[in-house]
């Protein structure tokens, strides 16, 4: 019963959203607002149940971890944002999380997104037994990356052999990449539609497996 009613409610709201394709209407608008309220309400409940209760409230009630009052009080300062006279206090928790977060992330981001990538860009072009299209690919990989980097280098005019030709090759490589992204974007969007149609035809109407 619980599941059957659930399926019908879910189907109703699925169709309510699709009704927007024809025309905007009050049911769509209702659904649009509900989703905001439910997701925020869900977030509060889960954050309390999964985070604050076991990590903060229970240790404090057990009386063995009073030091946790420090992050709790720091967190509570967020609320001062709604009291204009002391709103500046809300900067403290933001400053704590932002400063430490950036400090801790700096060396790791440097490693993950810069150093490792530079290292990987220095790949061998040829190894024995490598088919021709891989050799060609490796050449594209090395020179394509360089050319695309040149294209994004705006401090020098894109003229001459290095900057001019480099940026021209770069834009061709970038367009190939964007084309692939567009193809995958189409695939992704269609997949999301497939998910809903599977729900409507399968879970709800039982027309398909």
């Amino acid at each position: 019963m619980y599941e059957t009613i659930g399926l019908w409610v879910a189907a109703f709201f699925t169709l309510a959203i699709y009704s927007f394709l024809y025309k905007e209407n009050p049911i769509y608008r209702l659904a649009e607002h509900l989703v905001v309220g439910i997701s925020a309400g869900y977030g509060i409940a889960i954050t309390w149940e999964i985070t604050l209760e076991p990590r903060l409230i229970q240790p404090l009630l057990a009386g063995d971890n009073w030091v946790l009052l420090i992050p709790a009080l720091l967190g509570l300062l967020y609320i001062t944002r709604f009291i204009p006279s002391i709103a500046w206090l809300s900067r403290y928790p933001i400053a704590f999380l932002m400063g430490t977060g950036m400090g801790i992330g700096f060396p790791l981001t440097m490693k993950a997104s810069v150093l490792r990538q530079l290292e990987a860009a220095m790949a061998p072009v040829y190894a024995s037994g490598m088919p021709w299209f891989e050799v060609l690919g490796n050449l594209v990989l090395i020179f394509g990356t360089l050319a695309a980097l040149i294209y994004f280098f705006f401090s020098k005019p894109h003229k001459g052999l290095f900057f001019g030709t480099g940026s021209k090759i770069g834009i061709w490589v970038i367009m190939l990449g964007f084309g692939a992204t567009f193809g995958f974007t189409v695939m992704g969007r269609i997949s999301l539609l497939i998910g809903r149609v599977q729900f409507l035809l399968g879970d709800w109407l039982h027309l398909i497996e």
Partner: peptide
């Protein structure tokens, strides 16, 4: 009721909203 509202209102609405993009693309 909490689980019901999440699974049968939140999930279908959000999934369907994203799937609208298939039509627009």
């Amino acid at each position: 009721v909490f689980h019901f509202l999440f699974m049968n209102i939140q999930v279908p609405i959000q999934s369907t909203m994203f799937s609208l993009l298939a039509f627009y693309i």
